[in-house]
Amino acid sequence: MLVADRYLLGELLGRGGMGEVWQAQDQVLGRQVAVKLLLGDDADESAASRFRLEAQTAARLNHPQVVAVYDFGAWEGRFYLVMELVRGPSLAQELTTYGTLAPDRVAGMAAQAAAGLAAAHRQGVVHRDVKPGNLMLDADGTLKIGDFGIARFVDETSTALTRVGQIVGTSTYLAPERALGRMAGPASDVYALGCVLYQLLAGQPPFWADSPTALLYLHVDAAPVPPRQHRADVPPAFEAYLLRMLAKQPEERPSAQEVADWFAGTSWREAPRPAAVPMPAPAAQ
């Protein structure tokens, strides 16, 4: 199948709530790419302009930890997005294969993912859908973030059924402020990344419930079980910082750049520093 008279589709790489991803050959430039065909048959003029804006936003992000966007458009009533082909598994596949990952490997992934998010946040771009399926590993182990900006577009333009699917799919990683109906901000991405890191360490997300509504209440009201209760080899400092990323109030979370810098160093291996105790005032003479 030839998309837009240019992209020859090959192997189906994945299918999810937002559409299908195919390995393809760019017949013009002669290179392998990934083509995402988004669900829906509503490629009307207003939807097309919104998608164009989101895709242009994603294409502005030039960072080693962000999947590059090459092209976008509408074809046979569906939107398509042409991206860099990442040849490794997603973190969702890693979780399926291994269940949990070692803390040192999770720390390396945290540093890379947060660096990519920080680069986007500096451009005023919030991902809105950070989850294991959108974090991919290249053949050399480099982590790359996909689907920048596209989650909001799909949520705005898809059918009601697809929107319900999106809520079910993303509420596992949904920040409390978003569960309360507020706009997503950079801190929302940090919270979602914290949920992903927690799942990589513990083998389960910080919150889970049988219904999306009950799950949203947990994000808003419940305290996560400290990861060290799931596995003792998580360093105490790692646990303490991860729980900061999962703070209920956005302003209490570190920025993505702070997360990237912290996990790129060695502090996560150490015991957390005790809080400073104020010295008593000298007794009056």
Rank of each mutant, 00 (worst) to 15 (best):
T157N: 13
V66Y: 03
Q56R: 14
M83V: 05
G165K: 13
A247Y: 00
G88H: 04
P278M: 14
V67R: 07
M136D: 08
A260F: 02
P64R: 14
D147R: 04
D221H: 10
P224M: 07
P235S: 04
A232S: 11
P89K: 04
Q123P: 02
E251A: 12
P64V: 10
R269Q: 15
A187W: 15
H219L: 07
A264R: 09
L9K: 13
T172N: 12
E177F: 14
Y7I: 03
L29H: 14
D26F: 05
R182G: 13
A24S: 05
P206H: 09
W208K: 12
M109R: 10
E252R: 10
D44Q: 06
G141W: 08
Y198Q: 12
D5F: 05
S158E: 13
L193H: 06
G77P: 02
Q123C: 13
S188F: 01
E252Y: 00
G265L: 07
G185R: 14
E11W: 05
R52I: 01
D71W: 04
G30S: 07
R228H: 06
G169D: 15
E54K: 04
E177T: 11
A264E: 02
L13K: 06
K248R: 12
P282D: 14
P235I: 02
E252K: 06
Y217G: 06
G141E: 02
D26V: 06
P206Q: 08
L197Y: 11
Q249V: 06
E270T: 10
A202T: 02
L12D: 03
F207P: 01
A264I: 01
Q65M: 03
T159V: 10
L143Q: 06
L161D: 15
P226L: 05
G146S: 15
Q32P: 00
P224C: 04
C195E: 07
H230K: 02
A271I: 07
A43G: 08
W22F: 15
L29V: 10
M183G: 13
L29N: 10
E76W: 06
Y98L: 14
A120I: 13
L13V: 04
G146N: 12
A222P: 00
